[in-house]
Computed example of a mutant assay.
Amino acid sequence: MLTTKRWCSILLIVLTLWAGAAWGETLDRIVAVVNGDVILYSELQEKVRQVEKISPESKPADATLQPQFERQVLNQIIQERLTEQEVRRMKIAVSDREVDAAVDSLKRENNFTDAQFEYVVQQGGQTIEQFRSGIKKELERSRLLERVLKSKTVITDEQVDAYLKNAKTDEGNTKERLRLSIIFLPTSEGAQGKDADDVEKLAREIHRRLKGGGDFAKLAKEYSKGPAPEEGGDIGYIAAEELAPDIASAVRGLNANDVSEVVKAPAGYYIVKVVDVQREKLDSGDSSARDKARRALFQREMSRKFEEWIKELEARSFIQVSL
């Protein structure tokens, strides 16, 4: 027979396991079911962190609006899940070679060196692997829509001309390109407290040394974890509109050889030196400008078609939300 003490021990174990299971369920529960596919709260939180990292301005300043923001992100996950299901159902495949070609095309359109490309991706809060994954999904979505709609999206020369004409009106007749050198100090994912403080202190110490006449290239080689550290952080010329808002704001108005203040970004801290400034007239006949305009118009049209298609798909799918 079990003694009273033994019964109490068993009861304590059972209660402990039940409490642990209940606590785990609270932390990670089902927030949506999409045609039988489950979306967990942990997946939602990871996506929220990604969105906030790539677009810090999207995070609600008012904490009471956070549930609404989470619901918007959940809707995005649901649409991604529906798209993935259709890609699998229709057996659409995109190879690594095709992703390579798309990335190379993007570099050519923007005249990016490898260091410039790494910098642009990094300042957007992504790794190269995450960026490539996004390109792959973009290609899959394009092929999916072409197959579903049974038509290709064609951008005419007239549309490109109109786009470039509007760009001239909006930006003036000149384009500014900056030759930049970068010192980047990353913070680890979710870093806070002492770890984040230590990185910020180092960034401000480096900045103090630069203001005191320190050699930017030497300090970049010693400390930078960003692109081209062996070249002193020099990433070459980059168009002003390709800069992240925080970086663009930090270098606005700076002259050649000026150094920015310390810039806090989602992935870490930047110090930027303006090596040179070039201003050139916009030329609507320039092939790279036209390629870039054509891609922008293509993306705009694909987004419009996708919004129409995904609403129809949602209407005929089984979606249960419990957030």
Rank of each mutant, 00 (worst) to 15 (best):
S303E: 12
K211P: 07
E98P: 05
T4E: 13
L82P: 03
V99I: 15
R179N: 12
E140L: 15
I78C: 02
Q66K: 12
D104E: 15
E280S: 14
E312D: 13
A167Y: 13
K311D: 11
K264D: 10
A167E: 14
L11R: 08
L144F: 02
I128Q: 12
E80T: 04
P186L: 09
L11S: 09
V14D: 00
G190W: 05
A102L: 04
G236A: 10
R71K: 13
S55Y: 15
I54D: 06
K281H: 11
I271G: 05
G233C: 08
M90P: 02
F306D: 04
E242C: 04
R294G: 05
R304T: 06
K292C: 00
R49A: 15
A101M: 10
Y223E: 12
R279N: 14
A220S: 14
D157S: 09
E52C: 11
R300W: 00
Q159M: 11
K152V: 00
G212I: 11
L144D: 01
Q159N: 05
R279P: 02
V73D: 05
K311A: 09
A203S: 13
K201E: 12
D161M: 01
I247G: 02
T174K: 14
F306S: 00
F298N: 00
D291Y: 05
Q159R: 12
E46P: 00
Q126C: 06
D195T: 14
E146I: 01
